[in-house]
């Protein structure tokens, strides 16, 4: 199934794009599976998703790694940065 991934902030810079279409294998993947796929790529984006705190939304609803994904879903990934 195809998931549209929207990157914010430093992740957008690392991905070199704001939006990417990611193909996920398997019958009923979770948000955690998508993140695992991205982490496993071994590039800077994957490293950042693995090491930084991130917040995710599926179709604009806040979601945790246990959230189920469906074909055509849009996942947003936002990495907050320090400072206050």
């Amino acid at each position: 199934m195809k998931i549209t991934v929207r990157y914010f902030a430093l992740l957008r810079e690392a991905a070199g794009a704001e939006v990417e279409s990611v193909e996920l294998a398997g019958g009923s993947p979770l948000l955690g599976d998508l993140l695992g796929t991205l982490e496993g790529r071994g590039d800077r984006l994957g490293e950042m998703i693995r090491e930084r705190p991130i917040l995710c939304a599926v179709n604009r609803k806040y979601a945790g790694r246990e959230a189920p994904l469906e074909d055509g879903d849009e996942v947003a990934i936002f990495p907050p940065v320090s400072g206050g």
Partner: peptide, 27 residues
């Protein structure tokens, strides 16, 4: 708006770190 009920203020990227301090005007 990053998600429903989640509003985030800032430029997204200017992280507090050595060489980039937190100062009254932007904060």
């Amino acid at each position: 708006r990053v998600a429903d009920n989640l509003y985030v203020v800032g430029d997204e990227v200017s992280e507090a770190r050595p060489g980039e301090g937190l100062m009254a005007p932007r904060v």
